[in-house]
Design a protein around this nucleic acid. Structure first.
Length: 680
RNA sequence: GCUUCCAUAGCUCAAUGGAUAGAGCAACGCCCUUCUAAGGCGAAGAUGAAGGUUCGAUUCCUUCUGGGAGCACCA
């Protein structure tokens, strides 16, 4: 009678098939309405056996071993299973009662997740928000999977870009402060960074004009204009064609001749080369800029520890970090470990010298120490990486070598994740490869969690062109939009806090619903909506489950005790001793949607296993939406506690479904690091 | 030029080598006397091109086309 506790229906089915046939198949959720699960019988075929005999043989063996509550059938090449609601409900109950969904936990692992990694010269933008969403969610997921998680942040608080803000402040700041102006610290400093860029443009404008007039440059610019002139009608024609195809709902067809295509290719190639002419001129002009010279001088003074420079640097960094703190607090992010580049930028020299002594690195004629990436087997083709400049100073890679080592040694990590944009894929490949070449066996514990760029409809965000989506502004806009929508729906009393949570949920869910490695487009007007597959939709369904449970609790419990202590679905409180809670009769659940909801509930464990394997947040994002959607469907078709319409026994069974849904929605949202609200 | 990521519906995105390729938005038609309509239901709509591997390919391999990112003394 006693059955082992089961958390995974597919596991159970796979085991049954394995016992019956000796082969463990890949069990899938059925794609046809008549079945719940199934597998393709080709997986059982050995040699040239006829598939029909494989199926009939397997089916016969399987049906002899099937536990109660499971039936087997076949369609095409698939062997299918149907599971009873009672069995599904029991599994769902097991999963919901276990804090980790019943997945097998690995040995306790210590895992660091480094994310955010801001520069202290401007406020956080949309790219940082994707980073925060991913980093926070990865940390939550690892913790859920049994890791002891350390969240870490590495702040890039030194360098030329910081000096630019500092210089602009010296020139234009007039001793104003975030307090005196009422501007948030990071925005305050960011404004001076922009001021610097503007001043620089102004300063070098005449130089650029002069350089452009030089015969060689002038010729190139003229050629460029000619090429663009030739290319423009071609591109316009292409666009018009695409538009026409769109209207006609045809797939775009390429009508250009091979000659035209070759010509376009040539034009584009030449343009690409010439396209750099403007950048080259600009770089040339910068060499004559007094502002740029002052920045370099300031950086040297900073490195020399000049008290005045350091004091200014500390003051301005303090403002920025204060601003970041506010944003992080709002995003509910807390770091256990903080690294500052200013403290570590000089580290790593010993590691490099050690490698040089061992002949792993080389010294090139200028005196710089380099790693030959091809020779070290890090990449197939030619490639080198400087580790120490010819003047002996360290670079980015040098300090990353040191910090990687320090992380491992100080914290004894079993895993070390870097949540860093895909632009740095090459950097991490080189970093990990170099560490491996140096013989650190822990290098396999380092993982770069790369993610793609967030683009605006008009293309890449550019701070100079003012097309940056600022995190603070975005969150404010979302919060206000949520309040406006709530008011429209008659909820005038929504708190700012709840509105903020709902707004953040919208942003986070949008960012987490796209596979990390792929780039994504973000349209501020349309992307973060509140209807359909969105964070607010999921929260809304969560609120609905909570509301039902609350009302059920009030019906059953004496008022005032309707919280934790009184399980929904418990019997009427009387003077008698508490009755043992009877398992509701799940066989009363006859609606197809109830069966679907149960299947979706037990899918939680399967999803978590997949997440454990792939560390892919998208799986959770997709799952939690599907669960919310299935629940919403159930909600509209199956009254739970409308007493006059629903018999009490049925109500009890449905209430359990609501309870499990509530729990698993909450757990899934926790994994995405999305906060919940109780009212909407 | 080299490396790398990507290409799926009008748009934004899904799919551990398996069944009829799923959602949302937009557009169309229904549903509030019912636990909150930020909701539900219905119909319409897609794998960039050509080969290969496989019983089976959106998925793996090759080539091509188109786009993003990166390419040693910035971080």
């Amino acid at each position: 009678m006693e059955q082992p506790i089961s958390y995974s229906t597919t596991d159970l089915l796979a085991s049954v098939v394995e016992n019956a046939t000796g082969m463990r198949p890949n069990i899938l959720r059925a794609n046809i309405p008549e079945a719940d699960y199934g597998f393709n019988a080709f997986q059982l075929r050995e040699g040239n056996q006829h598939i029909d005999s494989v199926i009939s043989d397997a089916r016969a063996r399987i049906s002899r071993l099937l536990p109660q509550g499971i039936t087997v059938s076949t369609t095409g090449n698939f062997i299918n299973f149907n599971i009873s609601n009672a069995m599904l409900a029991q599994t769902a109950g097991n999963i919901a009662e276990k804090p980790n969904g019943g997945i097998e936990m690995p040995d306790q692992q210590k895992t660091m997740v480094e994310y955010f990694s801001p520069n202290t010269n401007k406020p956080a933008h949309l790219g940082h928000l994707r980073n925060l969403a991913l980093g926070k969610s990865l940390s939550a997921t690892l913790a859920f999977l049994g890791h002891d998680v350390l969240e870490a942040n590495l702040t890039n608080d030194r360098g030329a870009h910081i000096c630019k803000s500092m210089l602009a402040y010296q020139l234009f700041g007039e001793d104003s402060t975030p307090e005196s102006t009422g501007i948030k610290g990071d925005h305050f400093v960011g404004d001076y960074y922009v001021r610097y860029e503007k001043a620089l443009q102004q300063e070098i404008a005449p130089v650029i004009a002069r350089l452009r007039a030089e015969p060689e440059n002038a010729a190139k610019l003229k050629r460029k204009a000619e090429l663009e002139e030739e290319l423009r009608p071609i591109i316009e024609k292409e666009k018009a064609q695409q538009e026409a195809d769109k209207v006609a709902k045809k797939t775009a067809k390429d009508t250009r001749t091979p000659e035209e295509k070759a010509r376009i290719k040539d034009l584009k190639k030449e343009l690409e080369k010439l396209g750099k002419i403007n950048d080259e001129i600009k770089d040339e002009a910068k060499k004559e800029s007094s502002l740029e010279k002052q920045v370099s001088a300031m950086l040297i003074k900073w490195e020399a520890g000049d008290p005045e420079t350091r004091a200014l640097w500390e003051k301005m960094n303090g403002w920025v970090l204060g601003g970041f703190q506010e944003t992080l607090k709002r995003m509910n992010v807390h770091f256990d470990v903080e690294y500052f580049e200013s403290e570590i930028y000089n580290m790593g020299r010993d590691i490099v010298m050690d490698g040089l002594a061992k002949g792993i690195f080389e010294r090139d004629p200028s005196g710089a120490v380099i790693a030959d990436l091809q020779k070290l087997g890090i990449q197939k083709n030619e490639g080198k990486k400087v580790l120490l400049r010819s003047d002996g100073t360290t670079v980015y890679t040098t300090q990353d070598l040191a910090i990687a080592k320090r992380k491992m040694e100080e914290h004894g990590l079993d895993n070390s994740f870097y949540v860093v944009a895909g632009e740095q894929d090459d950097h991490f490949r080189a970093l990990f490869g170099i560490l491996k070449a140096l013989g650190y066996e822990w290098v396999d514990k380092l993982k770069h969690m790369s993610y793609g760029m967030v683009e605006l409809p008009e293309g890449r965000m550019k701070s100079r062109e003012g097309t940056v989506v600022d995190v603070d502004d975005l969150l404010n806009e979302l919060r206000d939009k949520v309040k406006a929508i709530a008011a429209e729906k008659g909820n005038e009393t929504m708190s700012d806090e709840d509105a903020d949570k709902i707004g953040k949920a919208a942003a986070q869910y949008y960012l987490l619903s796209v596979r990390p490695e792929s780039g994504m487009k973000f349209d501020p007007e349309e992307s973060v909506s509140f209807e359909g597959k969105t964070g607010p939709y999921i929260l809304y369904q969560y609120v609905r489950t909570g509301k039902i449970l609350e009302q059920a609790g009030q019906q059953i419990c004496p008022s005032g005790t309707a919280q934790q202590g009184c399980p929904s679905g418990a019997g009427q409180q009387t003077s008698e001793a508490p009755q043992p809670q009877d398992e509701p009769n799940f066989n009363l659940l006859q609606e197809p949607i109830e069966h679907e909801l149960l299947l979706k509930l037990v899918e939680f464990t399967e999803k978590m296993r997949a997440v454990q394997k792939t560390m892919d947040q998208t799986l959770i994002a997709t799952y939690v939406y599907e669960l919310a959607q299935t629940f919403s469907n159930f909600y509209s078709k199956c009254p739970v506690i409308k007493g006059d319409k629903t018999p009490p026994e049925l109500s009890q069974a449905r209430l359990k479904l609501v309870e499990y849904t509530h729990t698993l929605l909450k757990q899934s949202l926790d994994l995405l690091a999305i906060e919940t609200v109780e009212k909407m």
